[in-house]
Design a protein around this nucleic acid. Sequence first.
DNA 1: CTCCTGATTTGACGACTGTCAAGATAGACG
DNA 2: CGTCTATCTTGACAGTCGTCAAATCAGGAG
Lengths: 116, 116
Amino acid sequence: MSNNQSDCCSPLVREPLAGQQSVELARQFKAMGDPVRLRLLSLIASHEGGEACVCELTGVFDLTGPTISHHLKVLREAGLIDGERRGTWIYYRVRPQALQRLSDVLVPGGLPVRAG
Amino acid sequence: MSNNQSDCCSPLVREPLAGQQSVELARQFKAMGDPVRLRLLSLIASHEGGEACVCELTGVFDLTGPTISHHLKVLREAGLIDGERRGTWIYYRVRPQALQRLSDVLVPGGLPVRAG
DNA sequence: CTCCTGATTTGACGACTGTCAAGATAGACG
DNA sequence: CGTCTATCTTGACAGTCGTCAAATCAGGAG
């Protein structure tokens, strides 16, 4: 079985998910299973240049800095975003491969698709 | 903004998710954020005929009936599966539209794609 | 009607999660 | 060096979640 992350995975719909794979995927879906995190992900992904500084994210929500920081950490540890410090600010960007992989898992067509 | 569920949604990557939409989507992603539920979903989706009876799902896990039932309820209330009683048994099947929608949200191409 | 089997509901309990306040780190600037 | 700003970490607390045992509901068979 192709358990490799870069080679990726058969879609959910084609064959039963193996135990280990389900744990990995669930971790990523779970990270997206919170409205705040989903919006953070979207804010980052859709921001110009494909990246956003924490300072641009904090103001959007009625939440304290530490809470935003916590959510970003969850997204980062799930492998959905990457953070990079540049001077005073820390910039986050999404990992398109990760989103693509999750997207692929969900539809029967799955991997083969990819309309360039 | 096309906030309509059937018309669907712009992908995460194109523009920031609105508050209400993020809550709905998060609910579905959250439902998939558990290894057992992901495997259940996969078992149902990949089962012959596109449906599976609860009795076929229970034996797969080292979990009690009530627990499986609970997870199925979560998936059902998230709109990811549908259940139907036929005689003694209850059969579940996935809602392909729901999975498709989630898949679409995750990639930049989003809706327009669809390589037949 | 009574019993049996399949499935859900209820109630309980430990584990985990989202949130905040307070403290700690990291770099920029005097 | 010390200070200021941006971000993260820690500790605490209420709320939610995953799980099981026990009770309940729905059909089929005697």
